[in-house]
Amino acid sequence: MAEALRFHYEVDGDNFTSAGAASVEVKRKLRQLGFDAELIRRVSIAMYEGEINMVVHARGGSADVYVDKDCVTIILADRGPGIPDIDLAMQEGYSTAPDNIRALGFGAGMGLPNMKRYTDEMKIETVLKQGTTVTMKVYINHTKQTEKGTSEEGK
């Protein structure tokens, strides 16, 4: 692959029903590109959790996915309220999602931890009242993380 492929999506923040549609599309494109199932699953789950987060917390945003020869990079950017305490937000089980979101099967405080679990690198840049950008990378042909998503990391 000579240069990175780029896919861009706008994530509609007013529609929980359609949340995840961009991740489904990325999954389809990665399949077409012939990547192995485990890599596709890791990329699409991490992006899906991120998309859900953007809809629940930030009224949507944009998703950009870059595919180059070494890795798949997912950049999720929103103009939501920002994350006051990233360490707290990264704790499994911590959530600020409202009850109506929990009733929909999310808001268990697993979103950000899942995104970290399924990717090789994750960086969160956040400014209160301005927004959050999450950058995730999944390395291609890299097996160190393949079991990462399968357990509670030894707990």
Binding site: G20, L104, G105
Partner: peptide, 17 residues
């Protein structure tokens, strides 16, 4: 196996193959 009904159930199943 779930008792939850919304489109994200199907999307979750898709994500998990």
């Amino acid at each position: 196996v779930t008792g939850l009904v919304n489109p994200q159930v199907i999307r979750t199943a898709m994500m998990m193959d």
